[in-house]
């Protein structure tokens, strides 16, 4: 199990470590970021039903809010461009709506990672008083059961009557389809050197050099770990409100989880302002500045920042046909 027991000697390991850490690896470019798949295998029937549910405002208490209200798939890349989304009766939450695109690749859901997967996530907003505001799932089921088409569809697809588990399962199945493959950077990763511009290429190098890639890695460029806000510089020194939310601490009550959040995916970062858990940062430039200052303990010149942002733009993929 242990690496050292698996045929490596101390010296070999040390040599390898030196090799990598000193950035001398040219022949074997380390895989920080990997492309996302072209499409996700889903149960088409369930996904179709899930799509109907995703857009159905009857999931909210006053029939005003659907999933798509805060996760606008058409204009806003799966988010809504607001700092805080407005739920039923104009009530507002306390955290920024993340994009639903590529959420399937996130290791956990919600900013504080309190949901393990999309299914668990989908249970949350419907009965959240400041989101869709339904009193109970029983009520949701009763409401949907008034629609004979739903009753028929659930019966046909799941072989049973409507219930909470099936509703969230269908929605999650649909959300699996919401991915953005074929980004220029993915094409670049797949060997097409010309897919990205020189500036974007430089931006990628800077992204690695500044250390952004330490956390924003993997196929979702983030979304596979937790990190503390302000690891190299106390976030209390930030002029905004980023220090106010205790993040994962609210879930675990572990002291070390204070201001810890899920590292968000950067795949649609340039399209889904405002930024951070409380949506308090309006521009990508500001967001990059804050990240480099508080997370990486550096300052970033405007040129570098602009290259990095150019790189981030190369991460924006295509919305697959037929899912909207």
């Amino acid at each position: 199990m242990f690496l050292l027991n698996a045929g490596f000697t101390d010296r070999q390991v040390l040599a390898g470590l030196l090799f990598v850490s000193l950035g001398c690896a040219k022949a074997t470019e380390p895989t920080f970021i990997t492309p996302i798949p072209q499409h996700m295998a889903v149960d088409e029937a369930k996904a179709k039903l899930g799509k109907t549910l995703f857009f159905d405002k009857r999931l909210s208490t006053d029939n005003s809010i659907s999933c798509a209200t805060c996760h606008d798939l058409n204009g806003a890349f799966g988010a809504d461009g607001q700092q805080f989304s407005s739920g039923v009766n104009g009530l507002q939450g306390t955290r920024n709506s993340p994009t639903v695109f590529n959420a399937v690749f996130n290791f956990k859901q919600f900013w504080d990672g309190r949901a393990h997967d999309l299914v668990e996530q989908a249970r949350g907003p419907v009965t959240n008083p400041v989101e869709m505001g339904m009193a109970t799932w029983t009520e949701v089921v009763r409401k949907l059961a008034d629609d004979s088409q739903y009753v028929e569809a659930f019966q046909q697809i799941y072989g049973q009557g409507i219930n909470e588990d099936l509703i969230v399962d269908a929605i999650a199945e649909y959300e699996k389809q919401l991915i953005t493959p074929n980004s220029p950077f993915d094409q670049f990763l797949n060997g097409d050197e010309s897919a990205i511009t020189a500036k974007q290429k430089k931006g990628y190098e800077l992204f690695k050099a500044y250390g952004c890639v330490s956390c924003h890695q993997g196929k979702n460029v983030g979304g596979n770990m937790f990190q503390k806000m302000g690891v190299l510089k106390d976030i209390n020194l930030q002029s905004g409100s980023l220090n106010e939310d205790l993040g994962r601490y609210e879930v675990t009550k572990n002291e070390w989880d204070k201001r810890v959040f899920k590292v968000p995916s950067l795949r649609l970062a340039v399209k889904t302002a405002p930024y951070f858990h409380d949506g308090s940062v309006k521009t990508i430039e500001e967001a990059v500045d804050i990240m480099i200052e508080f997370q990486l303990g550096r300052t970033v010149p405007k040129d570098d920042r602009s290259s990095i942002i150019a790189f981030l733009e190369s991460l924006v993929g295509e919305i697959p046909e037929g899912v909207l």
């Binding site: 242990f2 690496l3 390991v13 850490s21 920080f32 970021i33 990997t34 890695q217 993997g218 596979n224």
Partner: peptide, 27 residues
């Protein structure tokens, strides 16, 4: 469980440069 340990070590020693495998395995 064994893979988790191995993958963590790989990450620790920068053999793996992203956490996707480790994360997938813990999940």
């Amino acid at each position: 469980n064994a893979s988790v340990g191995e993958l963590a070590l790989r990450s620790r020693h920068h053999i793996d440069n992203n956490y996707d495998n480790l994360t997938r395995t813990t999940a």
